[in-house]
Nucleic acid binder design. Structure first.
Lengths: 241, 241
DNA sequence: TAGATTGTTAATCGATTAACAATC
DNA sequence: TAGATTGTTAATCGATTAACAATC
């Protein structure tokens, strides 16, 4: 039996096992490309719900999202058959499934470290609420902000970080503090019972293989991609002239 | 002659033409995958400069960046031979070239529309300065902020947007205003002599094919990717137990 | 010259798209 | 049943990696 065939067989066996066990979520290995698209499906499904649509075909959705219908069917099928032949996809059911995969409704508790401009801006936005993430605390060293309420949560002294993480059962930490202190805080966090770090510091954290999922954000990279395209446009316009 | 061979021939001809013309930047069609990696090279080259390194090989850089040396050489070669056999890459020269491609030093002038939490946080950060982008104005409807200086620039009434864009020669606009007004502002911007929009509103702008480069940012997608991985981790840990 | 390392081609791998049988 | 649309396989496309000749 070829390797490929064997892997396929294993997958259907795993799927079956999950069905028999009555587990609600099937989590096979899925390619990064697909995972990165899930949040986009999440957004468009919310939009469909807002519009009151109860049913959508891959063809319709593909027009909305500007991707191929084939890709949508392929993507969704990584996690099991969410649709129905001849009908399409039930919007609410599909949304529920995607939410399950993304941990929405799991009720992750989060804390923001660094209650400066960026930290405050994030906490003040509806982003977390939409995604079922509860920001339950902020931490800072600045006495001027300690004790204040920002968005839905209070600012605590950074010295209390470890204590409060345990107390509040914080699972995800959002780093919006200056680069210079990222290293030190990273080390301290590696010893905490957290599961994920959303890292805005721009500093690579040296705490791999400690069981914490890390997502690095480099917002400036997006600006540069824009600048690349603008520079290219101007170069071309210049050459023509 | 095969299509592939012909395309390759065309590319070297274009390269040659640029050399003869004495133009400093060669801009062939480059795959999105490569373009998206350029900002990362930019960051690591700055780091090398900061460290005082003057020379780097693809092997060294690949270790730093955690990618293959092959990919680095392939990427950089899309734009011409920036290295030298037997030596490697001159850090400063390579940095200069990458900066050229990304429009750093071009001195793009930018304006922020929506001087709320997010707009202020962005403008207050060193991000723009590092990338050679000058934020020269903010716009808002809120009288409480109009006239104030935020970071390096003043806040103007939104009604003056078109006038000030011309006056200041603004090329790039950063949208950090509420979703609800994105559509309307987008329409107004389509009539302005700007080249790029960095769109944080989460709303798709309906102004394609109007010659303006648009880069949409969905920061929440990054949070959801993190949540996906955390949810997966917890599911697996649960199953084991 | 010998050693090092790029530039570049060829091979591999993975992701996307097309096609169609299964099935609602 | 006939029509629609998924789930899934096969074909294509693009991106990454390996290998090595060119050359500093």
């Amino acid at each position: 039996m070829s390797t490929k065939k064997r892997i396929e067989k294993d997958e259907s066996l795993e799927k079956l096992r999950h069905q028999i066990d009555g587990r609600d979520s099937f989590r096979p290995e899925v390619s990064p490309a697909v995972i990165k698209r899930l949040p986009r499906y999440f957004r468009y499904l919310r939009e469909l719900i807002r519009m009151g649509k109860t049913r959508v075909s891959s063809a319709e959705l593909s027009k909305m999202m500007n991707v191929t219908a084939s890709q949508i069917r392929q993507d969704l099928n990584c996690f099991g058959g969410f649709g129905q032949q001849g009908y399409g996809y039930n919007v609410n059911y599909l949304y529920t499934k995607i939410c399950e995969l993304l941990g929405v409704g799991f009720g992750f508790r989060a804390a923001v470290i660094g209650a400066g401009n960026l930290g405050s801006a994030l906490v003040g936005s509806p982003m977390f609420e939409k995604r079922g993430v509860d920001v339950v605390a902020l931490f800072d060293v600045n006495p001027a902000v300690i004790g204040k309420k920002i968005g839905p949560a209070y600012v605590y002294p950074l010295t209390e970080m470890e204590k409060r993480i345990e107390e509040f059962g914080i699972e995800i930490v959002i780093l919006t503090l200056p680069k210079e202190h990222a290293e030190e805080i990273g080390e301290r966090l590696a010893e905490c019972p957290i599961h994920g770090i959303w890292n805005f510091t721009g500093k690579e954290l040296a705490i791999k293989d400690r069981g914490i999922v890390i997502e690095n954000v480099h917002i400036g990279d997006s600006l540069m991609t824009l600048c690349y395209e603008v520079a290219k446009k101007l170069t071309l316009e210049n050459e023509k002239a």
